[in-house]
Design a protein around this nucleic acid. Structure first.
Lengths: 255, 255
DNA sequence: CGTAGGGTTGACAGCTTTCAAGAAGTGTGG
DNA sequence: CCACACTTCTTGAAAGCTGTCAACCCTACG
């Protein structure tokens, strides 16, 4: 059942890891005695700004982020780059592999990153051989589907600061889910990426950052965001329509 | 393995169907001799405007739409109703059931509808017993994940007419995927639902309809939409930033 | 040292939101 | 069958926010 990786994968392989490591990354008990635990899994190192896979290409493997961050993007008919989401440690990329469809989006590394490579054939074999893995896969899918709802929530908010505040809240939650503090966000993506993700112009992101900063919600140093007032940030994120009264005041004071 | 449905389900049951019917709805060959083909499947009839399930409730079953249309909605912290999507014949609802999570959104019938009920325990059993069913489920998940990308595309467009045009294009594609003509769209949802789905005010939907109508892309009669110029509609849907020149002209002529 | 890319800020035009009112369709009860 | 109430849809006008264009600062890098 062990498959030799195709030449394209082997040439960039950065070593091998055991399947047990994959299970750990998926948040499962690392039962090294379980079936398939010793199954060798290929790894790839992707340099910053390099693509892991490209939209439209045949999906030969699914990837599990071991370290680093990726953005998934889709290029519109008129050449506009739409950011669909960001993936960090423990998240899956390339789910199309499971059903033999081509990749629906590209994945680009935002920093030097490491991924585990789950080849298509192995994927099916492991899913049947290791029920816990299958469950984890289903859980990851459901989480991603719920994330789609979160995205709608982001776009639903009309005011720019509200969208940005919701983005920070979601990122903070993601950090905390990984056991980190959640008060400090180190953004790996550019303002332009955030803008594309939130459906705004990148200049608007700058301005919205200024507003949230003036509100006392966050302090901004380049790409380091510190959430100084969780309550205020949450309050700002809560209002769906228009701006929050305080935010309007903060804007008025500058003008 | 056959499970008695809980009383809550039994009380609204609208009959039973065979598992082969489920397979057919999922686009699989109706191999009545296959394992599990005779497995009885409960059905429910949902009246217009009634909920199939509610956000936050424990997910006891997954549902396959046999007839009718549903909208999936999530209520924001401030009470605003966000429409996440629409589901028609052959589409799945309540995927959280697979992993034992509560429903992340509510599903409301837009017209009198029928669904097949796939109870949680049965789901797991069938997935293992019938590989083709498992594959179909994975395929449905991947499709839904790709649909999340389409949604980002919708929200990404800045101009209201462009969003609406993309919505029509997607709806038309969905009709055609079901073997229908795709030129006539019978909208089951209100303007307000479309507005929520597209992240716009419902008044803006009315105005955007007027623009597309004046452009000759579509003709509007209440909730009946006829696509009169597929090319022009696609052209309008294509431009990501701002309005198309023709659309701007159409708006200018009125004023 | 010069270039390139990322980030910030300003000014203006343009589009959407909001508030408001009216028209049109739907359903119920007498 | 009609009248009434109710919801949906449409249209108008003003205010406000974002997009765009532009200039500028800063850092990284060759």
């Amino acid at each position: 059942m062990i498959v030799n990786p195709p030449a394209a994968l082997r040439s960039v392989a950065a070593g091998r890891d055991s399947f047990a490591a994959v299970m750990r990354l998926l948040g499962l008990p690392a039962d090294t005695s379980a079936q398939g635990a010793r199954w060798p899994v290929g790894c790839r190192r992707i340099r910053a700004l390099s693509p892991l896979f490209t939209e439209g290409a045949a999906a030969g493997a699914m990837y599990l982020v071991r370290a680093g961050t990726f953005k998934t993007v889709r290029v519109d008919a008129d050449g506009y780059e739409q950011v669909l989401g960001f993936a960090g440690r423990g998240e899956l990329l390339g789910h199309e592999t499971l059903v033999g469809l081509p990749h629906g989006s590209s994945a680009v590394a935002l920093e030097d990153s490491d991924v585990c490579v789950l080849l298509g054939p192995d994927l099916h074999a492991l899913r049947h051989a290791v029920p816990a893995f299958d469950s984890a896969l289903q859980r990851a899918f459901v989480h991603q589907l719920q994330h789609a709802g979160d995205m709608a929530e982001l776009m639903n908010a009309v005011a720019a600061e509200v969208r940005l505040a919701r983005f920070f809240v979601q990122e903070s939650a993601r950090m905390m889910a990984q056991g980190q503090s959640g008060r400090r966000l180190r953004l790996r993506m550019s303002r332009r990426d955030i803008a594309s993700y939130l459906g705004l112009a990148h200049e608007t992101i700058s301005r919205a950052l200024g507003v949230l900063s003036r509100l006392g919600c966050v302090t901004v140093h380049h790409r380091e965001i510190e959430i100084t007032d969780t309550q205020a940030l949450a309050a700002c994120a809560r209002c769906t329509r228009g701006r929050s009264p305080q935010a309007a005041e903060a804007v008025r004071l500058v003008a």
